[in-house]
Design a protein around this nucleic acid. Structure first.
Lengths: 240, 240
DNA sequence: TGTTCAAACCTGTATATACAAGTTGAGGTA
DNA sequence: TACCTCAACTTGTATATACAGGTTTGAACA
């Protein structure tokens, strides 16, 4: 990172990973980092403050800074791509395309699309990783009418959500969230034990009155959680 | 707001709303705010930096600060009680109160409340049933300041959410959704097998700046799913 | 006229200093 | 022993100061 506080953030993150600080362990204090790294306390303070907001550490006045339990947080109130979510936590996104095809979809899917039963649809399966750790298994069907160029994209560079937002206005979305047990193949792909519960988000998006895309997103329950913030309408939006 | 930078954030937000700065309009510069509000530039800088991260404004070195295009506010989201949810599915609600006490809460809870570590809080555990089948295990902590009459209610007649809504305006709520495995006791109470994954919703509600209630709601994964509908998705992607 | 360059803004970062407030533990007192 | 107080630590906030770098504007110059 080009900034000093960025370097401090990176240092703390790598210390957490390399020296295997576990969740809840106490981290060096600000003044200790000042001495060790030779920067001012304000710089250390900003680095740790941002790490707190990103969910990596927990700080308590008088007690110290501690490693937070490692778990991703997604927001239900925003359709953002997994890449943006990872970026907000200073994690590096990578993805591998497991499947990319144009086939006749199962009944449930082509019914949702409202297309004739002989029509084909695009089908992709993509494994998303944050800092190399599997975090999302994406199984997506896309209408050929809405996004004809779908299969021409390289989804290890651009996420499907980013592409779809670019080619079509997504006017409406519906999420269904479930807790499920993964299949053996899914568990293997996500690199988790088959008894680890997973969050499954079924997301349907519309452009106009047509279904554009139907996705099933699977997240390891011990690495991902979903947040939603609501404020009452009418009242002034309170800061923070 | 108790902090100065928080007051600056609030001021900028209210200026955006009241004086109807439109998206893209140029906001007063840092030095202008310094003069107007009588605080240091570092304080203004921190306020504007946080507003940038929260997506309210966009800043460019050399040019200035600008109002960002509005992002989605939780529109179709309501704080709904389990009874209303079941009623909408024509199911009959019943509940049994498992625990009702006033004690010093564990660290994680009083941390959420932000109260001194010696203060007590109300604690209730309630099992909700739909058509006689366990559907929600509610483990709730409530601030004694917000709802002093909490323990006097009969929660097999009225839900906690209904009571809290009656005595205090719940201005803000945050939900964290996880997929978890239940403990043996939880599984027994919910009448499910211990390997059945559950949806766990941690709900924190605020009245004003104070946390009013902190609840952990556990749902059997095979009997409950969460839905959320959004419209006007991605009307404005956050640029760059 | 057209180009260049410097001044005057803007945000972004880094530092030293200061005080407030939460927590812990040592040591003294009743 | 039981309790209290204080010192020493922690994080959180606020300030003044400084410099780096982007952007715009306008004046001086060829």
């Amino acid at each position: 990172m080009s900034t000093l506080y960025g370097a401090v953030k990176h240092h703390v993150l790598s210390v957490i990973e390399d020296k295997s600080y576990g969740a809840g362990d106490k981290l060096p204090s600000e003044s200790a980092l000042v001495k060790k790294l030779g920067v001012s306390r304000m710089t250390v303070n900003r680095a740790l403050r941002e790490l707190t907001k990103e969910g990596h550490i927990i700080r308590r006045a008088g007690m110290g800074s501690f490693v937070a339990s490692r778990r991703m947080r997604g927001s239900a109130a925003d359709i953002i791509s997994i890449r943006a979510e990872l970026a907000s936590r200073s994690e590096i996104w990578s993805a591998s395309v497991l499947l990319r095809e144009e086939v006749v979809p199962p009944v449930a899917v082509h019914e949702a699309f409202g297309s004739p039963s002989t029509a084909t649809a695009f089908h992709v399966m993509i494994l998303h990783e944050g800092n190399g750790l599997p975090i999302e298994l994406e199984d997506r069907w896309v209408s050929t009418l809405i996004a004809p160029g779908m299969l021409a994209q390289d989804y290890s560079v651009l996420t499907t959500t980013e592409y779809l937002l670019a080619v079509a206005p997504l006017l409406r979305a519906e999420h269904v969230v479930r807790a499920v047990v993964p299949s053996e193949e899914q568990a293997a792909l996500l690199n988790i034990s088959p008894v680890t519960p997973c969050l499954e988000i079924s997301r349907t998006t519309w452009t106009g009155d047509k279904v554009a895309s139907f996705a099933r997103l699977l997240y390891p329950g011990d690495r991902y959680e979903l947040t939603a913030k609501f404020s009452n309408v009418g009242a002034n939006a309170r800061a923070e």
